[in-house]
Computed example of a mutant assay.
Amino acid sequence: MSEHEEKIINAENLNIDATLEDISKNLGRGETLILDVGNNYFNQTDRIYDTLVTRGYDVKKSFKNGRNQIIIRSGDQR
């Protein structure tokens, strides 16, 4: 197993504040966290993404298996 860890959180039913709290609890150094947002009702993917960018997270949007996702990487990924 590599040093790089990946976790998935279902963020479809979470509000932005709860999602950010989950990220801060679950994203450790050298890890990747995937927020599975699902159908993107009310453009929550964009709102969460924009908030994460303004807070300095390394993020990108993804669409996998018909679901919207945000991939968040912590620092020191080498």
Rank of each mutant, 00 (worst) to 15 (best):
I23K: 00
Y41P: 00
G30L: 09
L27E: 10
R29G: 07
T32A: 06
D22W: 11
E31S: 14
I16W: 07
T32G: 03
L20M: 12
V37L: 12
T19I: 05
F42S: 12
D17N: 14
T19Y: 05
E31N: 09
Q44Y: 15
N13R: 05
L35H: 10
R29M: 13
D36K: 11
G38S: 04
N15W: 09
G38A: 05
N39I: 10
N40E: 02
G30T: 10
L14N: 00
D22L: 14
G38F: 04
N40Q: 01
G38I: 05
R29C: 11
I8Q: 06
T19M: 04
T32P: 03
T32R: 10
D36F: 10
N40H: 01
Y41E: 15
E21A: 02
I9E: 01
I9Q: 01
F42I: 03
N15P: 02
N15G: 08
L20H: 01
N15M: 05
L33Y: 10
N13L: 08
N10I: 14
I9P: 02
I9T: 03
D17T: 13
E12G: 02
T19C: 14
N15F: 12
D22P: 00
L20V: 04
G28E: 12
I16H: 05
N10K: 08
N40S: 04
N13W: 03
D36N: 15
F42K: 03
I23Q: 00
A18F: 13
I9K: 01
N40I: 00
T32S: 09
L33N: 06
L20C: 04
I9M: 03
G28N: 11
E31M: 11
L14W: 02
N40P: 01
I8H: 08
D17F: 15
L27D: 11
N26Q: 14
I34C: 06
A11W: 09
L35A: 10
G28W: 04
A18W: 06
N10P: 00
G28R: 06
L35S: 08
N26P: 02
I16C: 05
L20P: 01
L20K: 01
A11D: 07
G28M: 04
K25F: 15
I9H: 03
V37T: 05
I34N: 05
F42C: 08
G28Q: 06
S24W: 10
N43F: 15
L20A: 01
I23P: 00
T19P: 03
